[in-house]
Design a binder for these strands. Structure first.
Length: 535
RNA sequence: GCCAGCGUAGCUCAGCGGUAGAGCAGGGGACUCAUAAGCCCUUGGUCGGAGGUUCGAUUCCUCCCGCUGGCACCA
């Protein structure tokens, strides 16, 4: 048994409804996961929800529900989103699950026993609204605190702290000697700059249960619950533990309770260390600083890579509920289809920088690239095969084989390096090439001359085969469209293995199915995409 | 304020020492298999500003202007 390729999204804080940012992170992670599977890796893809904390507790109280009932209801919406996005995740973690509670407590026990956490008294100002302590730096010139903090009270309380002070240098060394650990490099440079110019302060990892009870109690002092980041980060090892990963179980003493296992009759999964954590730019520090230190103290290897993505704007403005300019991914998918959504976010924005969603841009890409580009190529190619040869695939011809092979090579390398935008751009060059081929060879003219039958056969084979190859190349990004292309080709296999993109897979004599539009044109004025702003 | 990055055709961006490229949008043309899609041709730029190094700078250096990101508990 070999280690699986373990990739995760951040878990989303259960505070309201999902929006474009959440959907984006999950889509790019899913594309990477599918690409690795297509390339032959045994991928385990994890996503989930972060459900503890004061805001959740308060929101539940406001609605007159128990926190658990509140979470259970919202979790349904988030799981529905995962399904709507076509995610190929292997597990879905909720931090309120028993398996997570037990792993967090085991981790806390181990760190406590190892002397890595200590209790101390803190006195200072606290914002209930923001769930955070404030320092003198947060004061405005006139001495007051910004209204965004709401009511600020002075607190004196005991808490447990996680020691970080003696870990700065090895972490710097590690990041410098592993240039791929944080991707892209701008984020890596920011982390290094931060580590070199600041002394790490110990991290507060608890809240008194008297003030916050919606959390996991410390195993060694029940009057405290773990605070959000410790609770959340540990999810990445909860799931390996619950799938029987011996690497993780070996450092979590006393965790081998079969009740907590999600294994069933399956063999244990070797998952840790994670190969990729995909996270938003706002939580880089937790994943690049606290998480590695936590893992090192636990005796676990560090994840191999953090992929840090940017944020989306809408029409050049920050998206926010107050201005109403939010993009509702579910509404877009309902109107335009899942693959159109997945395509736009991957094609429009490279992983790393911030992006800008515009309805006009979405529609332009849908029309020009999906409908007129890919969709029309498949439609015209299969229609001609149907019309001129009754849908029977002619003898193999290799006129476009070199173009296809070159695109495959580039796509594989792009996917391996998770250059998703570049992969799509390069695959589209092959679509353009195929459309040019149709005009250059003009099969519709040859069809009128019986003496040109063998030449027409060659062209029709190349066109049908290029459609098949494109489906395989695009499957990670456009899984349902790839399936549709295979269905129209009347193939019983799936387009989910990159090796199938090798030229010549279409068997002569095979009869294709019925062509139909993959991406129907939508001729409507700009601005009709459904979103909360238009309702 | 400090640190980093960016400012190139209407839009999104590539190029990074030898006086500029792609896609989309715009304009024209020939065709008809196809979702009136596709194909071919084509109009657009004193490469943010000012200096400097160099035989020569969009490309290197300095300064200025503008924008973005980071500067510890927010997708």
């Amino acid at each position: 048994m070999s280690k699986r390729f373990f990739i995760t999204t951040a878990i989303d804080y259960l505070n309201g409804q999902p929006h474009l940012g959440h959907a984006y992170e999950k889509v790019i992670t899913d594309v990477i996961a599918r690409a690795r599977r297509s390339l032959g890796d045994d991928v385990f893809f994890l996503t989930g929800l972060d459900e503890h904390g004061q805001k959740v507790q308060q929101a539940a109280e406001t609605e007159g529900k128990s926190p658990q009932a509140y979470c259970d209801e919202l979790a349904k919406d988030w799981k529905a989103l995962a399904e709507k996005l076509g995610l190929s995740n292997n597990d879905f973690i909720r931090t309120t699950e028993e398996r997570h509670r037990s792993v967090v407590q085991a981790a806390l026990s181990k760190l406590h026993a190892g002397g890595h956490v200590y209790k101390a008294t803190y006195k200072g100002f606290y914002s209930t609204k923001e769930e955070t302590f404030l320092t003198e730096k947060d004061r405005r010139p006139d001495g007051t605190f910004d209204p965004c903090y709401g009511e600020v009270v002075e607190l004196e309380e005991d808490n447990y702290y996680f020691k970080l002070d003696d870990h700065q240098q090895w972490l710097i060394d590690y990041i410098e000697s592993n240039p791929d650990f944080i991707y892209p490099s701008t984020r890596r440079n920011e982390v290094l700059g931060f580590l070199k110019n600041n002394v790490l302060e110990d991290l507060c990892i608890t809240r008194p249960a008297s003030r916050l009870n919606w959390g996991i109690p410390l195993p060694f002092e029940k009057d405290f619950v773990t605070y959000v980041w410790f609770d959340a980060l540990v999810n990445y090892i909860t799931v390996p533990a619950s799938h029987g990963d011996p690497t993780v179980l070996s450092v979590l003493d006393g965790i081998a309770d079969p009740k907590l296992s999600t294994l069933g009759s399956q063999p244990p999964a070797l998952l840790w260390p994670a190969d990729i954590h995909v996270v938003g730019k706002d939580i880089v520090k937790f994943h690049a600083v606290y998480w590695p230190i936590l893992l090192k103290k636990m005796g676990l290897a560090l994840p191999k890579q953090l992929i840090v993505h940017g944020w989306w704007q809408k029409d050049g403005q920050k998206m926010s509920k107050s201005t109403g300019n939010v993009v509702d991914p579910i509404a877009v998918i309902d109107e335009w289809g899942l693959d159109a959504f997945r395509f736009y976010v991957v094609r429009e924005l490279d992983i790393g920088p911030d992006g800008n969603w515009t309805n006009a841009g979405f529609q332009a890409r849908y029309q020009a690239e999906l409908a007129n580009g890919l969709g029309n190529l498949v439609n015209r190619s299969l229609s001609m095969l149907k019309r001129y040869r009754n849908g029977v695939v002619p003898a193999r011809s290799d006129e476009l084989a070199d173009d296809a092979a070159k695109t495959l090579q580039v796509a594989v390398s792009n996917y391996r390096e998770h250059k998703l935008q570049l992969a799509v751009q390069n695959i589209w060059l092959l679509i353009t090439r195929a459309n040019q081929y149709v005009d250059q060879t003009a099969p519709f003219k040859l069809a009128k001359d019986p003496n040109q039958a063998s030449r027409l056969d060659e062209i029709l084979y190349n066109l049908a085969e290029i459609c098949r190859v494109l489906a395989v190349l695009l499957w990670p990004v456009l899984p349902s469209s790839a399936d549709k292309i295979f269905a129209q080709l009347n193939l019983s296999t799936a387009p989910d293995k990159m090796t199938a993109a090798l030229w010549g897979g279409l068997a002569p004599g095979h009869t294709i199915g019925e062509p139909s539009a993959l991406f129907p044109r939508k001729d409507q004025p700009v601005g009709t995409i459904s979103s909360s702003s238009s309702k």
